[in-house]
Design a protein around this nucleic acid. Structure first.
Lengths: 240, 240
DNA sequence: ACCGTATGAATGAATG
DNA sequence: CATTCATTCATACGGT
């Protein structure tokens, strides 16, 4: 189940709102923090070379992994959501015009559609009603939170929600450290996309550090540590 | 190519290429790997059975608590959604109410939740809707045959569905350690961290138990275990 | 590896 | 027109 059955689209793009991106950044930062802590722990532990059995009792490792698993799953879930594309409506292509059609128009449409199947004017009306309502609501919602930045597509509402049937292909990849597991993390690695392209990347992040998704704050040297760790990640199980 | 056009969202959207997504995945995968590794390592170390009270005091405990706190907060939060615990949090009661909350409430919820992750009113609406619908359906179906135990009857809908649903609180949004936060990457324009608003804030997260494991499902042993830990969470100092 | 469940989401329809 | 319900879909996850 590899990470993605990459769509055969000519130009597969995914969309994310700025907020989504931001949230993603935050979440990544959180993981970074967590990892940082783990790394710290690691250092401490290794330097001490001894540990409390008691710890084990109290903080069941299983639980810890469980937690991490949750978190990771969540992140991956979000990612999947964000990377998805909207699904379109079925009848849409016929009704591309967002504005309320005249009665006559409705009639026409009904006729037209009748040729292809059972349909009543009522259906058409409903459809338009719902469409308007939802359009409106969507707009409203969006306004509430974002409104910054460049407004590009906004009025469009759904004019063409059509064709794009849903696909939402990206399935996830993350793996959960469930105690032992070997995990397969999505193989990946092949691409090396230019980090510059990643929106969540901060310029000041050194080219590799950003893989940890964190801003390199001066005081975040731990992260650097974790970075090293990352270096070794490769020879973990990653490739399986 | 333009599949993005069908976004009826007013917000400006950004696009991610597959490569970008992949990189993102990679990042996440790395976290997963790191966490996994660390957990394993931790396990190994703990198997040595030596004691490190010192460690515990000065570090491990703090860290673990920190991690767990993050997660537990999430868990408790979500559980609260389902269990309707009224610990003085305003949100809780809102969630507890099976009926549809007013618009304003939804707005509030959205706001509050936004502090912890990307969320839109639509999500809230969906959540409530689905909840109602499924509650009802379950009720219908279930009534016919089972409902043994304490026959809550049917009106309760909520109460019983609760028991069924709440076992797996997996959808969480991660919380940022905003307290000291090194803040993240990027600009984070929207965030206005008002800790007061954090629903999790309530330390008295009720008696703990049902927050964590809830019905202590066999599967949730981890949670139960963590319960002990949770006791200590309070004195973790993550800022240090 | 398949199948069932749970859940978020989209949509047609009904109600006020 | 606004809100809600009922249905359906697609995916994620867990168990076998």
């Amino acid at each position: 189940m590899m990470e993605l059955d990459n769509q055969q689209q000519p130009n597969p793009m995914k969309v994310m709102t700025d907020e989504q991106l931001e949230t993603l950044r935050k979440q990544i930062a959180i993981y970074a923090t967590i990892c940082e802590r783990l790394v710290e722990m690691h250092k401490t532990l290794t330097s001490q070379q001894d540990l409390a059995a008691e710890l084990q009792n109290r903080f069941s490792l299983g639980f810890l992994s469980f937690c991490l698993t949750l978190v990771l799953k969540q992140l991956s879930f979000h990612l999947s959501l964000w990377s998805g594309v909207d699904k379109g409506g079925r009848m849409v292509s016929l009704y591309a015009d967002p504005r309320t059609p005249s009665k006559q128009k409705i009639k026409d449409l009904t006729e037209e559609l009748s040729q292809h199947g059972q349909i009543a004017e009522q259906n058409i009306c409903n459809w338009f009603q719902n469409r308007r309502a939802r359009s409106k609501r969507k707009q409203h919602c969006g306004v509430g939170s974002s409104n910054n930045k460049n407004g590009e597509g906004e009025v469009e509402t759904e004019t063409e929600t059509l064709n794009e049937k849903r696909k939402r292909p990206e399935s996830l990849f993350v793996v959960l450290p469930d105690g032992n597991n070997n995990n397969v993390i999505g193989t990946t690695t092949t691409t090396s996309p230019r980090p510059e392209d990643l929106c969540f990347q901060s310029p000041e992040m050194s080219s590799d550090l950003h893989l940890l998704g964190v801003q390199s704050n001066p005081r975040d040297e731990h992260l650097v540590e974790s970075y090293n760790l990352y270096d070794h990640v490769e020879d973990y199980d990653m490739s399986g």
